[in-house]
Amino acid sequence: MIANYGYKDGSGDFFIAIDTDKCDGCGDCVPACPNGVFAVGEDPNDPLCDEPVAMVTDQERRKLKYTCAQCKPDHDRPPLPCVAACKPMAIEHSW
């Protein structure tokens, strides 16, 4: 499943997409993110599946543009810590 967390507003699309088929629930993204955007647990959108997966926390979903700004300087964009930490490459940002 491609789980798109985030929002769209007048200034653009701000979504973090987690591919739950690639995500193995290892939890590496949780400490990698300086702002606590991720949590790992039972997939809230697939109640019949018992494997844990990563998700974006409720508190962060509505403010990703601001939360992630610190990792996304205008120039010379380094790899995002969350994306770099995820070995199966399950995390993508839309902006």
């Binding site: 499943m1 491609i2 789980a3 798109n4 967390y5 929002y7 769209k8 507003d9 979504f15 959108n45 697939d46 979903r61 509505r62």
Partner: peptide, 12 residues
Amino acid sequence: GKVEAFLMNDKC
């Protein structure tokens, strides 16, 4: 009826 992709907009 199993979810393959989703997107939610709950900001406004």
